[in-house]
């Protein structure tokens, strides 16, 4: 049937699968003959026919061409099935969907990235985009927090960011293990130590729902204007088309109007943060 169904999937070929931690795997996926053409912060709906579909944020930067990367934690039916796949297997892809980070607005400004836990997965897309276009941005600070050292993702890349002279990188864990030599404490403990020019700094925050309230309080203490605090909200974006209702926050559909919002926009919406 000749229809333009928004539910039609594109075939994604898995190029490689990499075990990241005990819970996460990274999938490198190519759409034969085309690029995903996503903006940092956007997501795709990933399908395995017969099992279902789930929204996953794109972790690679659009500067990486020919393929894109998804980092998947094994938590449910679809992600469990994804974890069983190997290079050469196919997945269904719809998207990209949603409003990503406003890259054009960020250009020329200082950036403070705050990532908690899996928040680094979508944030990595923007961080690598910024690093790939480094001269277009001002000072860059990256703060990363996770529960324990074993959950830390992208070890090699983090080491690379740490070594760069044009990026300030700092990380912390909630609970250390004997080999950990870095900071111990919540992500909020790293914010006061950052020197920043609040007028020209955009804070980009992605993490578990509980994190936003506390991180935003610290950012406001630093006098970062509300419209310069960008957050990416997690909801169940089932259809991706602004219809099914699962991802609704107040009057907005996270899948179409988000997932990236300014704090200014969502602060008054009940249930957003």
């Amino acid at each position: 049937m000749n229809t333009k169904s928004p539910y039609q999937i594109k075939i994604g070929k898995i190029l490689s699968v990499k075990q990241m931690t005990s819970m996460e795997k990274m999938f490198e996926i190519a759409l034969p003959g085309e690029d995903l053409s996503h903006a940092p912060g956007q997501f795709v709906e990933v399908s395995l026919l017969g099992i279902g579909e789930a929204p996953l944020s794109v972790s690679s930067s659009p500067t990486k061409q020919g393929s894109f990367e998804l980092v998947v934690r094994k938590v449910g039916k679809l992600t469990g099935a994804l974890h069983k796949l190997k290079a050469g297997d196919e997945v269904g892809i719809r998207g990209p969907f949603g409003q990503g980070f406003p890259v054009r607005i960020l250009e020329g400004n200082d950036l403070l990235f705050v990532a908690g836990g899996l928040g680094i997965v979508p944030l990595r897309s923007l961080i690598n985009f910024v690093i790939g276009n480094r001269k277009n941005f001002g000072k860059v600070d990256i703060l990363l927090g996770c529960r324990n050292p074993k959950e830390m993702l992208f070890h090699e890349e983090l080491a690379g960011w740490k070594e760069r002279l044009d990026v300030n990188f700092n990380c912390t864990v909630d609970k250390a293990d004997p080999d950990w030599k870095g900071n111990v404490g919540l992500i909020t403990s790293l914010i006061p130590g950052v020197t920043l020019d609040s007028e020209r700094t955009f804070a980009v925050v992605v993490g578990p729902p509980i994190m936003y309230k506390f991180v935003i309080m610290k950012l406001l203490d630093k006098n970062i204007p509300e419209r310069q605090i960008l957050i990416s909200l997690e909801r169940h974006m089932k259809c991706g088309l602004g219809k099914c209702g699962h991802c609704q926050i107040g009057n907005t559909y996270c899948c179409q109007d988000g997932p990236v919002f300014t704090y200014e926009k969502v602060k008054a919406i009940g249930g957003a943060i």
Binding site: L49, P208, E234, R235, H236
Partner: peptide, 27 residues
């Protein structure tokens, strides 16, 4: 187990899991 259909079905915002996400948070 190789063929099948994908369908939509009425859902309700009154169901407990309606606004729940994979990470466990229920909004």
């Amino acid at each position: 187990l190789t063929t099948g259909r994908r369908y939509r079905q009425w859902d309700s915002c009154q169901n407990e899991t309606f606004a729940k996400v994979a990470g466990g948070e229920n909004f």
